[in-house]
Amino acid sequence: MKIGGGSYTLSDRNLVLEIEAGFDLSGQRCRYILLGENGSGKTSFLEKILLPALDSHDVDYLYIGQDIRNQLYTLRALLATMGLSVIGAGERELLRVWAAHSPTAKVLIMDEFDKYFSDYEFMFEWTKTVIPLSFVVTHHDEPMRPRYEESTGRVCRVRFEPIGQDGRLKRVRIRQEQPCPC
């Protein structure tokens, strides 16, 4: 399973994403780090290209959005309807219980999770036995670099670079930094 290279038009987001090299979603151990300025289409890539691709292949995933504070309300509700006691549980505990009760998830996706938790390696620790593939959107990958290499080995940095405007559509090139081992 792959997200192929090519041009993807997201009219409702006024974006054209030009993916140079595709993304392998076949389940091998790999961490993609998505980098780029605000408004360069990282979240749109996740929500409009990656998630639909995973859905269409029935691949389960854990997606943590940028507005995690809002998402946590839905997580608390979800876990409560699963019969789990989440009264008084803090944010980290909610995430831990959710991860522990998602045994079929194969991809971990975190969109600017470091806005809330500067060291977010705990999410990988909790899921490492079942989730081989992950996508992380961040603006500050430098502090976490040594940790990535240590825990994953296969890390691929992906740059989102605006390359121009086409009417109201913003063109963005998605380029994998070399060498990309995934």
């Binding site: 995933y61 997606y63 809002n70 998402q71 839905t74 699963m82 079929t104």
Partner: peptide, 18 residues
């Protein structure tokens, strides 16, 4: 406004989907 986003998030949870 939040309702729409909640609904979107719930669509991503595999625990519900199955």
């Amino acid at each position: 406004r939040a309702l729409k986003r909640f609904s979107w998030y719930l669509n991503t949870y595999s625990g519900l989907k199955s």
